[in-house]
Design a protein around this nucleic acid. Structure first.
Length: 444
RNA sequence: GGAGGGAUGGCCGAGUGGACGAAGGCGGUUGUCUUGAAAACAACUGUGGCAGCAAUGUCACCGGGGGUUCGAAUCCCUCUCCCUCCGCCA
């Protein structure tokens, strides 16, 4: 949500921002009209209320003085004013509801250096890291590798839960758990984050705080009987953790990290990315969320993005940082970088992280404030978040990029402290007979 | 799932229709006293909307929403959350 005062005083800048975002539906003009109407009604109502307050006090006094007749007459006048107030309040309520709805549908204006373009065609690769692996054989995609190695089971996932579900099994499930642990450990030990175990179902108002509702409800799962919504990312629970709070001076910045499942209906992407585990209804993600002082917003975005990039570098996965163009920016983000990792089997750049600065847009919706100095008036915090990282697509890249001619996978050295001797993934058939096979049967 | 009890300022807690933005206490800030500290005493000590250059004025807020009334922290309805006991469960 934007600051209505800023909107009033910066009409031209607002119009320009909406044009840049290519959002022709944003009801910003309506919001400004309703705001003017709202303030007019507010003033009328308050003038009447002031009159009634003094009148009512007078009535009380008159009764105490036993001047009941005078009090009765005054009572009648106040009754008339009361009716008028009711009338204005009704009107005001209608206007305010409409105003609020309009405000909730106005997106966050972009930062000045966001590439301006109507859609994702305008996204700009700002940096690239690493070498794309070369093979002297035809590299396979993970949807072939996974089942052959016995570490991803699509058929049974679909049988149990329907399309876009899967089992990770044996070394596959372990790889995900190990990666998740390592990501968390790096963020906690090296980047100063505090680990959380957050709720994975939340109330509707929390979805509003992060901007997932009202506009994007169709991508969310919800409980049919009660007001519970499944989080599409831990961002929702963590950002709302400090809702309606005033953080004391010195409490910022706050860095949080959590590994959680994410639930997405993917209704909007029907038929897209249907093979493999690229786009699924449930996936694990390590999410970083920051609450910071406004002046530090941009540098915090840079360090957040770096915290995610470092993981890819240590895994030796080639990736690129993409600056998202205005027309492709999410509703709540003021600026966003996507990190895309190269997957050699399906020959695609896969988004594994999305790092955004929201300025005070989410903080206004969720009412998260801080005191700049002790005793100072509260101000809205800036929030940021980014994945560090989304697990399935990292697994895809690790499998596809590190595959050997025989179909086995060699995992990066950085994971050795977590994997011990299990640095290779092989199918049961490859493992050979005898003792080794039973060993692997136990492993896989 | 059943029965009951609650939600008041940073914290504790009083307030059952009018003088209540809210007693009292704790905490905090400032001052007096003191060489300094403590104690004592005194004053101040919530958030937000609107109007205004400002001083300031005004309105709202006693968990959320709605209602009754000239007037609601107080009465009624409803929702949310918390606590206790029973049941069930990891």
């Amino acid at each position: 949500m934007l600051d209505i005062r800023w909107m009033r005083e910066n009409r031209a800048a607002l119009a320009e921002a909406m044009a840049k975002l290519n959002d022709t539906e944003a009801p910003w003009e309506l919001a400004l009209d309703l705001d003017a109407k709202r303030r007019r009604l507010l003033q009328q109502g308050e003038a009447l209320r002031a009159e009634r307050n003094t009148g009512s006090k007078r009535i009380g006094a008159l009764f105490r003085e036993k001047k009941t007749e005078e009090a009765g007459a005054l009572k009648q006048r106040m009754s008339a004013i009361g009716a008028e107030i009711t009338h204005i309040d009704d009107e005001l309520r209608r206007v305010e509801t409409a105003f609020h709805n309009a405000m909730m549908r106005i997106p966050n204006p972009p930062e000045p250096d966001v590439p301006v373009a109507p859609d994702e065609e305008g996204n700009v690769v700002v940096s690239q890291w690493g070498e794309m692996p070369q093979f002297d054989f035809e590299p396979q995609a993970h949807w072939d590798l996974g089942p052959k190695l016995g570490i991803i089971d699509f058929e049974r996932g679909i049988a149990v839960a329907g399309s876009r579900f899967y089992f990770l099994k044996g070394a596959g499930a372990r790889l995900q758990r190990v990666l998740s642990n390592w990501f968390l450990d790096v963020h906690i030990n090296e980047h100063g984050y505090t680990e959380l175990y957050p709720p994975m179902m939340v109330r509707g108002h929390s979805m509003q705080g992060t901007g997932n509702l009202p506009k994007f409800g169709e991508n969310l799962y919800r409980d049919a009987e009660e007001d519970y919504w499944f989080i599409p990312t831990a961002e929702v629970s963590i950002t709302n953790m400090h809702r309606d709070e005033i953080l004391e001076a010195g409490a910022l910045p706050r860095y949080y990290v959590a590994s959680t499942p994410c639930f997405r209906r993917e209704k909007m992407s029907a038929g897209k990315d249907v093979r493999g585990i690229k786009r699924v209804h449930q996936f694990e993600k390590v999410e970083m969320v920051k609450f910071v002082e406004p002046a530090t917003g941009r540098e915090e975005l840079e360090s957040l993005t770096r915290a995610a990039e470092v993981l890819l570098e240590r895994l030796n996965l080639p990736y690129r940082r993409v600056a998202i163009a205005t027309g492709d920016l999410s509703f709540v983000a003021a600026i966003k970088y996507d990190l895309e990792v190269w997957a050699a089997g399906c020959r695609e750049w896969l988004e594994v992280s999305s790092c955004s600065l929201f300025r005070d847009f989410q903080a206004r919706r969720a009412n998260i404030r801080y005191r700049p100095q002790e005793g100072a008036r509260p101000a809205y915090v800036y929030t940021l978040n980014g994945s560090g990282l989304a697990l399935p697509r990292v697994i895809i890249a690790l499998l596809e990029n590190n595959q050997q001619a025989d179909g086995s996978i060699r995992l990066p050295e950085v994971l050795r402290p977590y994997l011990g001797s299990k640095m290779e993934i092989r199918s049961a058939a490859q493992a050979g007979g005898g003792r080794r096979q039973t060993q692997l049967a136990r492993d896989i």
